[in-house]
Nucleic acid binder design. Structure first.
Lengths: 210, 210
DNA sequence: ATAAAGATGTAACTAATGTTACAAAAAAAT
DNA sequence: ATTTTTTTGTAACATTAGTTACATCTTTAT
């Protein structure tokens, strides 16, 4: 595990911290679709991502979903952190978007390291900062953009996170994540296809130029 | 200043920290409408609220606004904190909603205290936690609620923060903060009036039952 | 091979929100 | 006192998004 840690967090953390992480951290290898956290769960450990990607979702009382953002290599889950520290339930769901490797840190160590290691403190604050900005971006999207622009942004984000120019999603799946209906997504995607931005296939969308 | 600190933060902070705050903090008394931070500003100090309320707003490139949340007694601005720590520009605007008393903490002390005082660390983490939850609430509102429900929530929040059953806003001001048009707000307010929820007057709205 | 389930396309319609335009009343400015 | 500005009310209309319904095609299950 020290090898993966050094590769992905070597520049961020001091040597002693890397050692500690490798001692108490639990390496986990999860497959695409694996649910890491459910809304209402109590959280007892915080993930450090080594590879892959995790999507973070919000859900309302009626079961309506909304994709918030993706976590990638070098990221941690800031919301999980705040939950841990405050001993409160998770407000979000986290699902592996790709096959993902991560190291789970027990919550007790979190608090300890925050006092002990400056590099850990900086990492935690930077994570919060990044996540705040991602949440603001989502707010911007749903408050200021129309559905067609939100869908374009969605496709762009997917391309970035999967590093592939083919998006493997059904129209229904996209509709869930953007909290709209399948018909609306089909309609807009068809429009994009006529504009030459994408090519539609069953179960996947080939991206030409967004 | 020590008196105000003890009254509002005495339960949270240890004695040494209270002393330090009173030494380096700058007491500020700002009038309703005073702009504390503008988008793009670099931030060099973090506020601790003693009394009053501050509204935090988001704006897109076209100048369209959206109210995010209010800060009150005992709160601090988590986004300002992350900006300070990361030396990045503010992503939000902060305006005094009421006449407000606050203590400004220089950013250097922030980092120092995070290592030194456990109570400060807890305070910082709790602030982040609260702000994340507020942001999630706004996301819920704009993603899952219709404009009529958002407006009701807006009125309820105003009543809470101002501790008054009269909301002193014009329809246009409300429209800006909810990022919609004046006509839409007038229409919905009229509907609420017919339902007996409110009474409409020039420049203010009397709340009957929400 | 046939049936069932899943994915997509599309029309027709409804609902919600946003826009334009103008009138009327109240307050502020001259 | 008169004019100007601000605020509110409301009608008519446009646009966007959501819903219902059904057809077609593909894949999976039996």
């Amino acid at each position: 595990m020290l090898k993966e840690l050094r590769e992905n967090y070597g520049d961020l953390f001091e040597e002693g911290l890397l050692q500690e992480i490798s001692q108490v951290g639990i390496f986990k290898d999860v497959a695409e679709g694996y649910k890491l956290i459910e809304i209402g769960d109590y959280v007892r450990s915080v993930p450090l991502l080594i590879s892959g990607a995790i999507k973070v979702l919000r859900e309302d009382n009626d079961g309506d979903e909304l994709l918030l953002y993706f976590l990638e290599r070098g990221d941690t889950c800031a919301m999980t952190m705040t939950c841990c520290m405050g001993q409160t339930k998770s407000e979000i769901r986290a699902v592996a978007e790709l096959d993902t490797e991560l190291i789970m840190i027990p919550v007790q160590k979190m608090e300890e390291w925050t006092g002990k290691y400056k590099s850990w403190r900086n990492f935690v604050f930077e994570s919060y900062h990044n996540r705040f900005n991602e949440l603001l971006e989502i707010i911007d999207s749903i408050a200021f953009l129309n559905m067609d622009e939100r869908l374009l942004k969605y496709l762009r984000d997917k391309v970035n996170v999967t590093k592939s120019t083919t998006v493997h999603s059904t129209h229904q799946e996209i509709a869930y994540e953007l909290h709209t209906s399948r018909v609306v997504i089909s309609r807009l995607l068809k429009r994009f296809e006529l504009l030459g931005k994408i090519e539609l296939h069953r179960n996947n969308i080939k991206i030409i130029s967004l």
